[in-house]
Design a protein around this nucleic acid. Structure first.
Length: 519
RNA sequence: GCCCUCGUAGCUCAACUGGAUAGAGCGCCGGACUUCUAAUCCGGGGGUUACAGGUUCAAAUCCUGUCGAGGGUACCA
């Protein structure tokens, strides 16, 4: 919260449009916050950096922030380092965390497993990321619709192929989930009446999706507000409407009996087929309709799609299509998620979708547990190719960071069970470096949330959780909380422990991870 | 071939988006339990940020090229 204020005040002084940073230096000698603003300004105005820093500092000291900044120091080539007054920190610790109050309407789409098979580990990263990001954006004040696009259109090639397999005429989707469905007599009966493969496929897809939906809700705890069915844009006539619009505006044209989108005109590498020569619309056509529904009908300010690596290249096509409809592509943010490899005993665990040898997310959860699984997927930046170490994730020990954080929480709870934190306390008694470090760490959470709401880098959160647990443990090792000889200090420390416990709990719950009171 | 993402300690990953001495965890070595939870803590070693140039006060980060990994490149989704 202090950081946002510092940024705001500097922003008022420097020339408009100046890009500068306000960060939290790792080295405590560099203050609680640090900014490179003077260096940036000096470059633009061709000034001496130290002089520019001096000037900035003097102006800042006559601003409102002077009330809560203890001192501003100019260091190194011209950094401005800020220290916050202790009484201000105490006051902040004593009040509720101030999360940012952003007010956008966001439609966030994630996981989108095809209803042709079970949710597998390839979906996990996108699913957990989407779920956690939704939580974070909501805490940051946004209104978020959590959405899952179900690719179940009857004209969809994969749906037809699924129907083919279900009717015993195809090989593609022979997997355990399908076989167990085919054993049911109702399913057999229904399939025998199906006139066409696409009809059979649509029916089976509905069953598979229901199972997947139940699994996500009950076991993976990945929440949704809306399952948007691809088939619905056909049934409602929306797709037909959109295609007419595109033809009318000249963004679509006929060639070789098919309808093409002039995508190359809007930034895509080539034009794309919207309606096949057989008369069936393609995936992108239906997807445009889905996005129209989100952007125009339901009026979301921002559209976020989390795409897997295999889908990421599709982004420009989608954006081009929406640009052709006159929608601003800047309202769409696509987050790419790289593939995850499962590693055990130092070797990759191979899975082949084609042979039906995929590892389902359910198997992984049964093996590892939800908390550790979520932690491991959220811990890494989504754009790196990650290794998921099964052996490490399984380990319930200090090697496993998720338990370290949960343990710190349980420890705090244990202290609070012995002695309850009171309401009236004198926090000024907290003067030890470990205590101050802990207070500052606790106060950082809203800033982390703010950062993530801005750039969607969810992996900052597990890192923060770990750091917080570490700082708390340092404090715990060094200082005894309950001290009968010093009741006032005990009260102050109990208040600190309570604030820590609440902050760890909040952080973990944003990630969908439990915060046990005993371990 | 072209496009996208990535390459950082032995391993898995960070680095506040161009900032100060590149940081954590694991593993390794050495130490600490009569204690509010030892699922813990303290100390140590470990780096030419794949490579070669360039841009500037400042580069792991930006630009060019090379090498390597993964993905995309359908009238599949």
């Amino acid at each position: 919260m202090f950081r946002a204020e510092i940024r705001k005040e500097i922003g008022k002084i420097v020339p408009a449009g100046t890009i500068f940073s306000v960060g939290r230096p790792e080295n405590p000698e560099h203050g609680d916050y640090s900014s490179n603003a003077a260096l940036v300004v000096a470059k633009e105005l061709k000034k001496n950096p130290r002089e520019a820093a001096e000037e900035l500092k003097n102006k800042l000291l006559s601003n409102p922030i002077a009330k809560w900044v203890e001192k501003i120091e100019i260091a190194g080539p011209g950094f401005l380092n800020f220290w916050i007054k202790k009484e201000v920190l105490f006051k902040a610790l004593g009040s509720k965390p101030k999360f940012p109050k952003r007010k956008e309407k966001i439609s966030l789409d994630y996981l989108d497993a095809n209803p042709t098979g079970p949710i597998h580990i390839g979906h996990a990263r996108s699913g957990f990321l989407g779920d956690a990001l939704s939580n974070i954006l909501e805490v940051a004040g946004h209104k978020v619709s959590r959405e899952f696009y179900v690719n179940n259109a009857k004209v969809n090639t994969q749906i037809r192929s699924l129907g083919k397999t279900a009717l015993g005429r195809g090989e593609e989707y022979k997997h355990a989930q399908l076989f167990s469905l085919l054993k049911k007599s109702i399913v057999k009966k229904k399939l025998s009446k199906a006139k066409h493969e696409s009809e059979a496929g649509f029916y089976i897809a509905g069953l598979i999706h229901k199972e997947n939906e139940r699994f996500l809700k009950n076991k993976a705890k990945i929440k949704y507000n809306l399952f948007f069915e691809e088939e619905s844009v056909y049934a409602s006539g929306l797709l037909k409407n959109i295609l007419e619009k595109l033809v009318k505006s000249g963004a679509a044209y006929e060639k070789d009996g098919a309808m093409w989108l002039r995508a190359s005109k809007y930034g895509d590498s080539e034009d794309r087929v919207l309606v096949r020569s057989g008369g069936e619309p393609t995936y992108v056509a239906a997807d445009i309709a889905y996005h129209w529904d989100r952007m125009v009908k339901r009026k979301f300010d921002l559209i976020i799609n989390i795409f897997g690596a295999d889908h990421y290249g599709y982004g420009p096509r989608l954006k081009a299509a929406l640009a052709a409809l006159g929608l601003d592509p800047k309202r769409i943010k696509i987050i790419g998620v790289q593939t995850a490899r499962l590693v055990s005993g130092g070797k990759e665990v191979k899975m082949s979708k084609r042979k039906g040898e995929f590892i389902t997310l359910e198997e992984l959860l049964d093996n590892i547990g939800l908390d550790a699984t979520r932690w491991f997927f959220l811990e890494r930046s989504p754009d790196t190719h990650m290794d998921f170490d099964l052996d490490l994730a399984k380990e319930r020990s200090k090697k496993n960071p998720v338990y370290y954080v949960q343990y710190a929480h349980a420890r705090a709870c244990s202290i609070l069970r012995k002695r309850k934190a009171g309401k009236i306390v004198n926090l000024e008694l907290l003067t030890q470096p470990e205590e101050l470090a802990l207070i500052k760490k606790i106060l950082q959470l809203p800033e982390i949330v703010e950062d993530i709401a801005r750039d969607y880098q969810v992996h900052r959160l597990p890192r923060y959780a770990y750091e917080l647990a570490q700082v708390f443990t340092n404090f715990y090792e060094k200082h005894k909380v309950i001290d009968e000889k010093n009741p006032d200090l005990t009260k102050a420390r109990l208040a600190l422990v309570l604030a820590t416990q609440k902050t760890i709990k909040t952080t973990l719950s944003l990630m969908g991870i439990a915060a046990p009171e005993k371990m």
